[in-house]
Amino acid sequence: MPNSPYEIETLAEFDQVVRDGGSLCGFRVQSVDLSGRVETLMGVDVHGAVFLGCAMPWEAEYRVQSAGALVFPVVPDLPFDPYRGSLYTPEELFAGLAGGYAGTPDARTYAWFERTKAEHDIFAAVVRGMHDESMSNVLDEAIRGARVVGVMGGHALGRGRPDYLAAAGLGRTLARAGYTVATGGGPGAMEAANLGAYAAPFQDAMLPEAAELLAAAPSFEPSVTDWARAAFAVRERWPDGGSSVGIPTWFYGHEPPNAFASRIAKYFTNALREDGLLARATAGVVFLPGAAGTVQEIFDACTPNYYGSRGEPRPMVLVGREHWTERFPAWQLLGALARGRAMEARIALVDEVAEVPDVLKTLGG
């Protein structure tokens, strides 16, 4: 048996493991359709293996359990896969958008979440937990070794506003500098930063042109359908954009994910999603103007920096001097907490997003 569990997430990987070693001992087989591998399952060594949501005929399931494997069955009638072995894509979450957002997997999953949460269904809670742990697992795999910069900011920032274009410019600059841009994956400032990363491979003129097209549907309210369709129209005009990460949540399911984050880790549990985003922002976090949610994120990031619980403090850059010193004076409290501690040299307040890349480098990001 292997010293540590190994994961199999595709049918090709399953076949390769069987060919190479002839044993599935200790492996975790995650959401792979094994309906066509009955003969293999009837003969291969599976002691200590775990099958998570793998479709297989009853006789194969009976055999692998009898031979010492643990089988977590496929859960019927769910609009999502609780054992999935890959991040979401915008195309997957918005499938069926032509018929309206309400029929998409994203909207149907939110409706399921709201219903089961209200019913206090313990089985649904277990399913949600399995899903979110699967998300964390594949997210870690997807960004391993990357220099991740988190970009936080308010969801209310409308397309067409100058500060939306500025936030998009920040995302583009960070992506071109070799950082992986990660956001909360929703609308507003989050979408702008993901859009900027998407625009990174194109000529500079693409970004203002795309922003102008998006401005025709400036907000996801009142129509998520129109808002999302505008984003996909931009993606169709400029295909094969740059990569970035979005980490949204169905807890705020009335806010849809944006279509410019190429890799999406969507969670049911907002606290797990928030902490996960900040913990993975290894090269620092940029806080654009926002309200209560962004203020919370500032101090969520501050706490491990203050106590050193994640090692060396990570850079924190607040953008908008008036916003963070007068409207929501988070900077003064952040500075007071940092005084005399290692994190003091890793925080900065700037006026404009154009200052951020150089400041990040100065802070060690």
Rank of each mutant, 00 (worst) to 15 (best):
282 T>L: 13
340 G>D: 12
292 A>L: 12
326 E>G: 11
304 P>H: 02
315 P>T: 10
332 Q>T: 09
298 I>A: 02
290 G>A: 04
352 E>A: 13
306 Y>M: 03
327 R>K: 15
298 I>Q: 03
314 R>W: 02
297 E>S: 07
346 R>I: 09
324 W>H: 10
288 L>A: 07
274 E>R: 14
305 N>Y: 03
339 R>N: 12
324 W>T: 03
324 W>Q: 05
299 F>T: 01
287 F>D: 00
280 R>K: 15
350 V>D: 05
309 S>E: 04
313 P>L: 04
301 A>S: 04
322 E>M: 10
300 D>P: 00
307 Y>F: 11
351 D>V: 02
305 N>V: 05
306 Y>W: 11
350 V>M: 05
302 C>Y: 02
291 A>M: 08
347 I>S: 02
347 I>M: 08
301 A>C: 04
275 D>C: 14
288 L>C: 06
349 L>R: 04
294 T>E: 02
295 V>M: 09
344 E>Q: 15
290 G>M: 03
280 R>V: 05
321 R>W: 05
326 E>L: 11
274 E>M: 13
290 G>T: 06
304 P>I: 01
289 P>I: 00
283 A>P: 03
341 R>F: 10
330 A>L: 08
285 V>D: 02
315 P>Q: 09
351 D>E: 15
286 V>K: 01
275 D>S: 15
288 L>E: 03
289 P>A: 10
335 G>C: 13
345 A>W: 05
312 E>Y: 09
283 A>D: 09
325 T>K: 07
302 C>V: 03
336 A>D: 15
333 L>H: 14
341 R>E: 14
345 A>G: 14
295 V>S: 07
340 G>S: 13
327 R>V: 12
279 A>H: 12
301 A>M: 00
289 P>Q: 07
336 A>T: 14
311 G>K: 05
